[in-house]
Structures are given as structure tokens and as C-alpha cells.
Design a protein around this nucleic acid. Structure first.
Length: 291
DNA sequence: CGGGTTTGACCTGCGC
DNA sequence: GCGCAGGTCAAACCCG
């Protein structure tokens, strides 16, 4: 699960919030703002009140995750979207929250953006204590693929791997190789359907992609998703049910994807509806689609 | 040699 | 208070 337990490292503590795939319509005027003005961005996210819960921990352990989730910058909780078939009638909020992920702690009191006041040199250990790690916005999506680490246009360095409870598949932890970028992502396979890769992004890139392979559906979808998300913060603040229903569409599409083909459940791309329709149409009012 | 991966140890919060 | 589980660190290792 996401660990709010650990205090952020010097870089993490800066609270660089934001979304992956910055520059794809995140609303940030400049990528530089992300690396240099994280704090500012945090407030922006908070202002929007993005709080569609998404519990990364639940994703892997609940097997039920079949969509993506969003979390407000120092968002209180995350939750996951239930599988279309088994939980379509349950509101997101009712989903089991995992071991305190952000759910319990962050909801009680938000880690103030100032949480990074500690000197960098002591950040390593000392900041781990007494301070809750500031949580960054996250989103996750499922991809039916035999490849664990899907290409998304950025370069990642693996920094850890852990076995996940109730899952035969380990979870891998990656960090963006850009030293100024604090974006992280977790990759794991669904224990229910090994062919599905669950990717969870945390944070926002403060730089452009290293490369963005045209042929990579995953990359394009990821970017599209980022666009989508970035464009409609207010719309993302949806009632659980509505949100879930929207996700179900993407998930359904996803599962129809032939094995081996990267096809994340990104609404904007997976929906059978014309571009910018489907989920986008549900979540983004016409007035906001002026792109 | 630089950059990425592997992997065991460590840290922390939560639940019992 | 203790054990568990998730997340991260960092040394060792691998590879081009």
C-alpha cells in the first residue's frame, strides 16, 4: 500500500505533487513549475479538491480493481473502483480500505505542505519520523499485457520490489530517472487475472517525455489519460457511483483487448464512443474540451 | 564506467 | 506491545 508511514525523503518531502505526463494538459503552464514550484502545484490540486479515492493497496490485493483512481494531492483517502461484474452496485466509498493507507491517517490531518522544512541532510532518517509523508496525487490503470513494465515515454529506474500479500506476483517500484522528478510508479499484476498489469503513478513529471513511441498504445493512452484528468479536475470529483460506472466502461473495453496488446483502461481511448466522448463526455463538460 | 536491476535490511503505521 | 505488511534504502551485481 502506499506508505504514508514513511516520512518523505528530501526530494519527496518537497511534496512535489502533480501528475504524471505533465505537459499533456495538466494545467500547469510550465513544466519547470513542477520541479521548482511544487508547493504551488499542490495548492492547485487541493483547491480542486480531487479526492476520488483510490487505494493502490487495494488494487493489488483486492483483485477487484478494474479502473483507475485519483487522489487529491494530500488527499485523504484513496479507493478503488470495484470490478464491473462483482461490485457494480457498490459505491466506491464502500470499498474496503486497506491498512490505513491514506485512508485513516491522511484524512485525519493533512500533512502540511510545509512538511519539508527539514534540512536535506537530515531528511533521510529524521524526516521519516514525526512527519507523515506528503501524498501525491495518484492514478492507476490496468493494462492487459504480458509485459510488466510498459513503455510510457518516460525512463524509470526500479528501486524496489516486494511480494504482495495474497498475490503470487510481486510489486515493483519505479522512480523517474530524472533527478528532479519525484514521480513514482508501482507495477504489479492482478492476482485474479495475471494477464492484467496494474500500474499506479504517483506524482507529476516536471519534464517532458524522453521519448514517446508513436506505436505505443500504452504510452498514448497514458498521455491521453493524463490529458483527460488534467482537464477536468472538477469533474473528477464525482459521486462514487457515477465514477464507477464510467470506469466500468473502460474496464470492459480493456478486458476485450487481445493479450499482449497494451490497452490500458483509459476511457478516452478505450471507449467505443467517438474521441472525447464516452467517459470524457461524462466527466468533462463541453466547455472544458476546448483543446 | 555509468546506469539500471536485484535483493535483503530497515523503517513506520496499523490492527489485534 | 507485537507482528504484519507496504514502501524505501543501499550495497552488490549486471550489462552495454
Amino acid at each position: 500500500m502506499e506508505d504514508k508511514n514513511r516520512a518523505p525523503r528530501a526530494s519527496d518531502a518537497s511534496g512535489a505533487p502533480g501528475w504524471p505526463f505533465a505537459g499533456h494538459g495538466s494545467g500547469i503552464s510550465s513544466l519547470d513549475e513542477l520541479c521548482g514550484g511544487e508547493r504551488e502545484e499542490a495548492s492547485i490540486l487541493s483547491e480542486f479538491g480531487w479526492s476520488i479515492p483510490m487505494d493502490s493497496g487495494t488494487i493489488g490485493e483486492d483483485d477487484g480493481f478494474s479502473g483507475f483512481g485519483l487522489e487529491g494531492a494530500p488527499g485523504p483517502s484513496e479507493a478503488v473502483v470495484a470490478p464491473p461484474e462483482s461490485r457494480s452496485d457498490q459505491p466506491t466509498a464502500a470499498l474496503p480500505a486497506r491498512s490505513g493507507d491514506a485512508v485513516s491517517s491522511s484524512s485525519s490531518e493533512e500533512p502540511p505542505p510545509e512538511a519539508d522544512e527539514k534540512p536535506a541532510e537530515t531528511a533521510n532518517k529524521s524526516t521519516k519520523k514525526g512527519q507523515k509523508r506528503s501524498r501525491q496525487p495518484r492514478f492507476a490503470f490496468m493494462t492487459k499485457s504480458e509485459i510488466d513494465h510498459l513503455e510510457d515515454g518516460y525512463r524509470w529506474r526500479k528501486y524496489g520490489q516486494k511480494a504482495v500479500k495474497n498475490s503470487p506476483f510481486p510489486r515493483s517500484y519505479y522512480r523517474c530517472t530524472n533527478s528532479k522528478c519525484t514521480v513514482k510508479k508501482r507495477v504489479e499484476r492482478s492476482s485474479e487475472d495475471p494477464s492484467i498489469v496494474i500500474t499506479t503513478y504517483e506524482g507529476q513529471h516536471c519534464h517532458h517525455t524522453v521519448s514517446f513511441p508513436r506505436g505505443s498504445a500504452h504510452a498514448q493512452n497514458a498521455a491521453a489519460f493524463a490529458d483527460h484528468v488534467a482537464l477536468s479536475p472538477p469533474q473528477l470529483y464525482l459521486p462514487a457511483m457515477q465514477f464507477h460506472q464510467n470506469l466500468a466502461v473502460g474496464a470492459g473495453q480493456l478486458l476485450q483487448t487481445p493479450r499482449g496488446q497494451h490497452q490500458p483502461s483509459l476511457p478516452a481511448r478505450t471507449s467505443p464512443l467517438p474521441t472525447d466522448e464516452g467517459l470524457l463526455g461524462d466527466m468533462v463538460p463541453p466547455g472544458m474540451r476546448n483543446r
